[in-house]
């Protein structure tokens, strides 16, 4: 079998796990279409990859893939903590109020995930003051993102669990571990920036199949944009910028603004797309 045939079969196996007949049917139609010159192999592979992502996304609410979705959604705030480097600052032993802010945000996140939205908002609001005192606006933005990311958790999580609740807690554990690791000062700053961008970009791609992911990406870009880039650009123009030049800030400003627009457009188009048969 050619590499193309093997790749097609591999994608079909993921898309139609457990339905061998369907796997054979789809891979044989792809071979027939390409063989008859009716479609180009690259286009067929693209179509099949989109189908596979869509199928996996559809399955995720009722099967164990929930953990992947939750981990992806919660990785967004983790990545943000990384970029801001604020978690390590907030967890400075000298700064007890930072711990309180992080703990309150974490509790609010869990409440939101369990669909107790109103108490989550109240708790998140209470977290703002100690967090701001300890680590400045960065941690507030991180907390807002953490709360917003909970919308990406499948609706089954919590009370009417259609997938294992243990999977949800595992995802929370993974995200919390990532956040702590990312906040450690030993990690390279450039690597952290790339990782943050990669996470947000992956969320946009996933957002094409589920608008909630694109909305989480929009929150990531939007918070960074509002909390750092706009302020930083203003400071740089006023001659107050400490680390970055105006050119660098303009590039970041454009990148964040573009990320925000792309994620919002993706969320809008995705929600229209999935509402049609």
């Amino acid at each position: 079998m050619s590499w193309f045939g093997r790749l097609v079969l591999a994608l079909c196996r993921i898309a139609f796990a457990g339905d061998v007949g369907k796997q054979r049917e789809v891979s044989s139609v792809v071979a027939e279409v390409v063989g008859a010159g009716r479609g180009r192999w690259l286009r067929e592979l693209g179509g099949l990859a989109a189908l596979t992502l869509g199928q996996v996304s559809d399955r995720s609410c009722s099967h164990g893939y929930g953990v992947v979705r939750s981990a992806a959604a919660l990785a967004a705030p983790a990545a943000f903590f990384a970029t801001a480097g604020s978690l390590a600052a907030a967890m400075d032993p000298v700064s007890g109020s930072g711990w309180l802010g992080v703990a309150l945000f974490a509790a609010a996140g869990v409440l939101a995930a369990c669909r107790s939205r109103a108490p989550a908002v109240v708790l998140g609001g209470l977290a703002v003051w100690p967090a701001a005192v300890a680590a400045g606006p960065a941690i507030i933005a991180a907390g807002v993102i953490a709360l917003a990311a909970t919308v990406a958790i499948p609706s089954g999580a919590g009370r009417e669990s259609s997938y294992s609740l243990a999977a949800f807690y595992l995802a929370v554990g993974i995200a919390a571990g990532l956040a702590v690791l990312a906040g450690l000062p030993v990690l390279d700053d450039g690597l952290i920036r790339v990782a943050t961008l990669a996470v947000a970009s992956v969320l946009i791609v996933l957002g094409w199949f589920d608008p909630r992911y694109a909305l989480v990406a929009a929150v990531v870009f939007g918070c960074r944009f509002a909390m750092f880039d706009l302020v930083g650009l203003g400071e740089a123009f006023a001659g107050l910028g400490r680390d970055l030049t105006v050119d660098e800030l303009v590039i970041r400003w454009v990148a964040m603004a573009a990320g925000l627009i792309v994620s919002l457009v993706t969320a809008r188009r995705s929600s229209v797309r999935i509402s049609m048969v």
């Binding site: 369907k22 789809v26 139609v29 792809v30 279409v33 009716r38 479609g39 286009r43 067929e44 693209g46 179509g47 099949l48 990859a49 989109a50 189908l51 596979t52 869509g54 199928q55």
Partner: peptide, 9 residues
Amino acid sequence: TLTAGTLYG
């Protein structure tokens, strides 16, 4: 022109 992926989706 539908791809197989589009058709089966």
